[in-house]
Structure formats: structure tokens, C-alpha cells
Amino acid sequence: MPLSECIEACEQAHRACTESVIHGLQHGGKAAEWELVQLLLDCADINETAADFMLRSSRLHHLTCQVAAEVSDKCATACEKLSKEDVRLKECAEACRRAATACRKTIKN
């Protein structure tokens, strides 16, 4: 997988997680619970960092991609639990899964 595809997937996950935090805080309920908000923020940050490492051709990008894949999977699982109640979280889960998959493919290459 080209790095450009992984960068795009990480950027999309960053955006989806950030938007989901705002959405959850505005609408309340389970989407605003601290544990989920914290995970969404962690996922947004690590995906942004992974994308930055790849953009600057860091020789260490495989390390940030590995962490991004793990955090993105955890975030996707958490969002999927609420996805029937909240379309925004369903979309976030999908973006996180794509980022995790893209990061793992990048690590293997």
C-alpha cells in the first residue's frame, strides 16, 4: 500500500474522531462518557502523529503506525458498540478500521 493511502486513512480517522468528540459533547448520552471521549481523543492524536511521520518520510513511521493501528482498532470497537444508536459513531468506527488496516499494511511493506 502506498504511503499516500495510509496518510489519507489516518487523516480521515483523525477528523472522524475529532468530530465525534464534539458531536458527543453536544448531544450527551453514552457518546459523551469520558472513557469514550478520551479514547476518541487518543485515536485522533495518534493518527495525526502517524500521518505527520509518514508525510515527512520519517524512518520511524512504522512505530507510530503500529500504535495507530492498535488504538484505532480499540476506538473502532468502542464506537461500534454505540453505532446502532449513533450514525456519527458508526462512521467513526469505519474510519478507524480503515486507518488500522492501512497502517498494518504499511508496516508490512
Rank of each mutant, 00 (worst) to 15 (best):
T18E: 11
V21R: 07
L3P: 05
L63V: 07
C103K: 09
L25W: 05
T106R: 10
H14Y: 15
A44R: 05
R97W: 05
R98E: 10
D73N: 09
D73H: 12
C10K: 04
R88A: 06
T106Q: 14
H62A: 13
W34Y: 13
R56H: 14
F53L: 05
Q38V: 14
H23C: 05
Q38R: 15
D52M: 13
E19I: 07
N47A: 09
C79T: 04
V87R: 11
T49N: 13
L41Y: 03
S58K: 09
L39T: 05
D45P: 05
D73A: 11
K105I: 02
N47E: 06
M54V: 08
L40C: 06
A102T: 07
A68D: 08
S83E: 01
L3H: 13
E80D: 13
S58H: 11
P2E: 13
K108D: 12
S72Q: 02
S72P: 03
N109Y: 09
A76C: 10
K105V: 02
A69T: 03
E8G: 02
E70D: 14
C10D: 11
A100T: 08
K105G: 07
L41H: 06
E19Q: 11
Q12Y: 01
E80F: 03
I22K: 12
A16Y: 08
I46S: 04
C75M: 07
E19T: 04
A68W: 06
L63Y: 12
L55N: 15
L40I: 10
R97H: 14
E94H: 09
Q38C: 10
L25I: 10
F53V: 01
M54T: 09
A50E: 10
A32Q: 03
A32G: 04
K108C: 00
C10R: 08
G29V: 03
V37D: 02
L60H: 14
E11V: 03
S57V: 05
L55H: 15
L36F: 04
V21C: 09
I22S: 11
L40Y: 06
L25T: 06
E91M: 10
C103P: 12
C92F: 01
A16Q: 07
H62C: 01
R98K: 15
S83W: 02
F53A: 09
V71D: 08
A44C: 06
C10T: 11
I7F: 08
K90T: 00
T64P: 00
L89S: 03
E11H: 08
L82T: 04
Q66N: 13
S83R: 01
E80Y: 03
C92E: 00
L3C: 10
H27P: 00
A9T: 10
A78N: 13
N47R: 07
R104L: 07
S83D: 06
T18N: 13
L82V: 00
S83I: 00
D73Y: 08
A76M: 09
C103E: 10
L82S: 03
C79M: 05
L55G: 03
M54A: 14
W34R: 15
L82W: 04
L89F: 04
L39R: 11
M1D: 15
E35H: 11
V37P: 04
A16V: 02
V37G: 01
A78C: 11
E94F: 04
A95R: 08
L3V: 13
C6P: 10
L3N: 15
E91P: 01
A31K: 01
A16I: 06
D86N: 10
I7P: 01
L55D: 13
S58R: 07
A68G: 07
K90R: 09
